[in-house]
């Protein structure tokens, strides 16, 4: 597509359309997602919920219980640190509206989780975890469905819908059993789609 101002241009309407088509494809190439963050958060949350379930059932010493509890927090912090590192390292040479939209969706979701806790505490003067978990799941399901819609990946949309349905199901269960259902939800909505995206990534 070389072009010099000194040369007369022989550029007709057909070629215009061709250029526009090619360049739209260039912009769309940037929509591809390698699923790494889906896999990371899927496995981290799966481990946290399965770990919490085991902790709630097993008879453990106080110190061991504390160590395991703090391991969960540490895992979350490490995952967050990796997420920030990954986003900065893979900052593309082009900033798309898709990327910006996804950032807003997930940051709003995180703020939403904090607000739910604050509102619950203001109204009930305590945190009821049996209520908190399904509401958190609804917010995550909401963000997941939007992400799937933006990226145009049906499996993420379906995963998000199942996540939402499981959130409703959780409202019938005890906190202990909610942990197991939530671990299952993370497998369905994050781990499986994440691995599929990773397998299909541009190598």
């Amino acid at each position: 597509m070389h072009n010099n101002e000194s040369k007369p241009e022989t550029f007709d309407e057909q070629q215009s359309i061709q250029v526009i088509r090619e360049m739209i494809q260039v912009s769309q190439k940037k929509l591809k997602n390698d699923g790494i963050l889906f896999i990371l958060w899927g496995w981290v949350m799966f481990c946290v919920y399965v770990g919490s379930y085991i902790l709630s059932r097993a008879v453990l010493s106080h110190s061991l219980r504390n160590v395991l509890n703090y391991s969960g927090y540490l895992l979350g912090i490490l995952a967050l640190a990796f997420t920030v590192y990954y986003i900065l390292k893979h900052q593309k040479r082009v900033q798309t509206y898709i990327g910006i939209s996804l950032r807003y969706v997930w940051i709003s979701m995180a703020v939403g989780l904090i607000l739910v806790n604050l509102i619950q505490f203001n109204v009930l003067h305590k945190i009821i975890f049996e209520l908190q978990q399904p509401i958190f799941m609804v917010l995550i399901a909401f963000a997941t469905v939007i992400t799937g819609g933006i990226l145009r990946y049906n499996m993420i949309i379906i995963g998000g819908i199942i996540f939402g349905i499981l959130a409703y199901g959780c409202s019938f269960l005890s906190l202990q059993n909610q942990m197991l259902v939530e671990a299952l939800a993370w497998i369905i909505a994050f781990i499986i789609p994440g691995h599929i995206l990773y397998a299909k990534r541009d190598k």
């Binding site: 597509m1 072009n3 241009e9 550029f11 070629q15 215009s16 250029v19 526009i20 090619e22 360049m23 739209i24 260039v26 912009s27 769309q28 940037k30 040479r93 082009v94 900033q95 798309t96 509206y97 910006i100």
Partner: peptide, 20 residues
């Protein structure tokens, strides 16, 4: 805009926020 390179530049930029 009726030039291959300029049309290509604008066609890319119209679909993204910024490009290097």
């Amino acid at each position: 805009l009726h030039s291959q390179v300029r049309l290509a530049i604008v066609s890319v930029l119209v679909g993204v926020k910024k490009a290097e």
